[in-house]
Design a protein around this nucleic acid. Structure first.
Lengths: 179, 179
DNA sequence: AACCCATATGCACATAATTGCATAGTTAAA
DNA sequence: TTTAACTATGCAATTATGTGCATATGGGTT
C-alpha cells in the first residue's frame, strides 16, 4: 500500500504534524494520491510502530499540542526499496462513465448536468495546476527534487486538459443523441 | 456504491451468470469500473436479497451448474434513480506519479522501467479500444444504447492516447534530469 | 450572545476491496 | 501423461476506506 510511502515522501520535505499532512493530501501530493485525515492519522501510528517515522509532541497554548513526525533512516530506506517495486495500475472506477455507457437506462438531462459538474471540477484543477506551475517552476533553475514535481505536474496538466476536451465532446455528442 | 449499478447495467443487456459478469468486468464495462470475481459474486447475493435481480439455476452436465441472474423491474427503477444522483469524482491513487513526485528519493532506472511498463499497458488498452470501435461502431447506424457505449469508448480512446503521450514525455524529461 | 471556522488529534463502526484458498469436471497442449 | 487452462461458484481473513462522532480553544462574523 502506497499511502505509507506517500506520507514518507511528504516528510522528506520537512517534519510535519498529522494535520499538516492531511492538508498536503488535500493539495500537492493529493493530486496523485488522495487520503482523508483519518487515514493519515491511522497510517502515522503504523509508521511509528514500524520505526519509519519518529514523533515528538510540541507544547502549544490555546490550541491542542502538535505531534510532529520526522522520517527516520529506516523510513528513507523503505522509500528507496518501494521505488524499485513495480507500480500498480490504478484501478478505474468512474460512475459517470458507467452512466454514459448505460445511456438507454439513464435520465439524460440529469446526466448532462453531472457532466457539467465534472467539467467544472476539472477546469478548477487545471487552473490550480497552472498557478502552481507559474509560481514555482516556470523560468527557474530546478533542483532534482523540483524536476520530479515539475514532471508530475506537467503530466497532470496534460491529463486535465484532455479530460476537459473529453467531457466537452461528450456533451456535444449527447446533444446529438436520438437525432 | 456503484458496483451494484454497474452489474445491473450489464444485466440490462442480457441475463448473465456471475462468471459471465466477472469476464465482462475484465473487459467492456471493466474499462470504466473494475471488479474482481469475488466482488461480483458477493454483490450479486446482495442484489438478490434486495430484489433487484432474480436468479435461477441451470443444470449443466460436466461443468458446475450456472446461476443466471436477470434484472427485475425494481432493478431497472433503481438504475433510473441512481442515474439522477450526482456522480462522485473518482479518487486519484497512482503510485507511479507519487514516485515521479518524489524523484530525489527514488531509484531512477527502476522508475524508467516502470514508466515503460505503464506505457505498454496503455498502448495495449488503446489497441483494444480501437478494435472494438472498428468492429462495433464505425460506419454504422447506432441505437441509443450503442451511442452511449460509443461516447464512453471515444472518451476512453482520447484519454488513453493522451496518457501515452504523457508517459512518453515524462520519459524524455527524465532523460534530461540532472543535466 | 450565538454561530461558524480553523487548529489539532483521534476512536468506533461500517462498508469495500484484496488475497488466498477450496472445489470440481472438461478440454487441449507439451 | 501430467500439466495447464477454462468453466463455475464461493468462503474466510485481512487490509483499506469512509462516515460519524468526540474533544478543546481562539478568532471573527451576524
Amino acid at each position: 500500500m502506497a499511502l505509507a510511502e506517500a506520507i514518507l515522501v511528504c516528510l522528506t520535505d520537512r517534519p510535519m504534524s498529522g494535520y499538516d499532512l492531511a492538508k498536503t493530501f488535500d493539495a500537492s501530493i493529493g493530486f496523485f494520491w488522495r487520503a482523508s485525515h483519518q487515514q493519515v492519522y491511522r497510517e502515522l501510528a503504523k509508521l511509528r510502530e514500524r520505526g519509519l517515522v519518529k514523533s515528538s509532541e510540541i507544547e502549544q497554548s490555546g490550541k491542542p499540542n502538535r505531534i510532529v513526525h520526522t522520517i527516520t533512516t529506516a523510513g528513507k530506506n523503505a522509500l528507496k526499496s518501494w521505488s524499485q517495486k513495480p507500480s500498480r495500475v490504478p484501478s478505474v472506477k468512474d460512475e459517470l462513465l458507467v452512466k454514459l455507457y448505460a445511456l438507454e437506462h439513464v435520465d439524460i438531462p440529469a446526466l448532462r448536468e453531472q457532466l457539467e459538474v465534472r467539467l467544472d471540477h476539472h477546469r478548477a484543477i487545471l487552473n490550480a495546476y497552472h498557478k502552481i506551475k507559474e509560481r514555482f517552476y516556470d523560468g527557474k533553475d530546478l533542483t532534482i527534487s523540483e524536476q520530479g514535481k515539475h514532471i508530475a505536474l506537467t503530466m497532470g496538466i496534460r491529463s486535465e486538459k484532455e479530460m476537459i476536451k473529453s467531457y466537452e465532446e461528450a456533451l456535444v455528442m449527447l446533444g446529438q443523441v436520438g437525432s
